[in-house]
Design a protein around this nucleic acid. Structure first.
Lengths: 124, 124
DNA sequence: ATAAATGCAAAGCCTTTGCTAATCT
DNA sequence: AGATTAGCAAAGGCTTTGCATTTAT
């Protein structure tokens, strides 16, 4: 694993997740790591193919990349676009049970209005 | 609602869902409807903002557009990339209950190996 | 020495947008 | 007439790729 790949992985692991390629690139620069965007994309691709990180696809946004944790679910604020982790216990088993299908995995993104945005709306 | 918008909506409603903009465009042409890609994209955008159709985001693929049905979940074959509808009863309520958060909606895409691909793998 | 990874620049794909002409109310 | 929408062509954002160079094994 090359220095750059390790750096990119570290950036993702150290962050609270959900970084875009652009953000990974900027965090690398902040750390004084020299990388090109091509390398960032290439390594994000490789790392997610290898299952070391996770690629998350969200409507209308560039892909985000996540470290892999127990929390496999995301919650997205429809107003401010903030993405957070959230864990729904035993969901895979539950889905397998309900559908009768053996799953490789699943992607779940729930949409809500976050407390901050709700508060802002109330004030108007 | 313009003729083209109606045609585009019809194409989606008549299909089994999950069309890309490109596919909608082609189906329009097959039906002899004259539209430009710009119009297809514009109308798919408008229709999904209005909640008349649904935009589905899938990793590594262009957005797909769906008619709105009871089945709000998708299942995606990791081998052949086929996408199908599947319904998981009462999932929104279940998720709200498990998380304690009031949801606007959610996107769920389950990943599996479809029976055809499983069969192919067995033969090897 | 061989294989793998980088950086750059260019291309690619998917999607949106500015503008003019056409269409609808 | 006034407002909405279409079509075209051009631009835009995000991502990938070819190729020469560097780095690691």
């Amino acid at each position: 694993m090359s220095k750059q790949r390790k750096d990119i992985l570290n950036v993702i692991n150290e962050s609270k997740g959900h970084l875009t390629a652009e953000e990974v690139f900027m965090k690398c620069k902040e750390k004084g790591v020299s990388v090109s965007m091509a390398t960032v994309y290439r390594n994000l691709g490789i790392l997610s193919e290898q299952g070391i990180i996770r690629r998350v696809s969200i409507i209308g946004q560039p892909d985000h990349y996540d470290k892999i944790l127990n929390a496999h679910e995301h919650i997205f604020c429809d107003r401010c676009g903030k993405i957070q982790d959230i864990h729904v216990a035993d969901l895979k088993e539950l889905l397998e049970e309900k559908t009768g299908i053996q799953l490789q995995s699943y992607d779940l993104c729930m949409r809500y209005i976050c407390p901050e945005c709700k508060e802002k709306e109330r004030q108007r």
